[in-house]
């Protein structure tokens, strides 16, 4: 049979797939929530053109540069809960 897959195999799997659709095989982290509508012109879930867009206020107002190109920041988010082969994901301290 090699790489050729028999018609019967495909047809059988298709029939089985159609019958098992109540249980989706591609695992979604959460069932889709049909509670929100896509509303044009209105922002949703942070996908809008951003609160700091043209003509709006934003956090940067009236501040001047606080840094040049120097890099001193350390990642302090949830990355510490993610283990990599090299150890925890925490970036304390940065080796530079």
């Amino acid at each position: 049979m090699n790489s050729k897959i028999a018609h019967a195999t495909i047809a059988g799997s298709f029939a089985a797939a159609l019958s098992m659709l109540a249980a989706p095989a591609f695992a979604a982290p959460k069932a889709p929530q049909p509670t929100m509508d896509k509303c044009f012109g209105i922002s949703m879930k942070g996908q809008n053109d951003c609160a700091a867009g043209a003509g709006t206020t934003c956090a940067g107002t009236a501040k001047t540069d606080y840094q040049g190109d120097a890099w001193k920041y350390v990642a302090k988010g949830t990355c510490a809960s993610i283990k990599t082969p090299k150890g925890s994901g925490s970036l304390e301290p940065i080796k530079s």
Partner: peptide, 14 residues
Amino acid sequence: NNVLASLGAALARR
């Protein structure tokens, strides 16, 4: 700074 901060905020939203 406003240019950089507002574009950075747009990035954070995405």
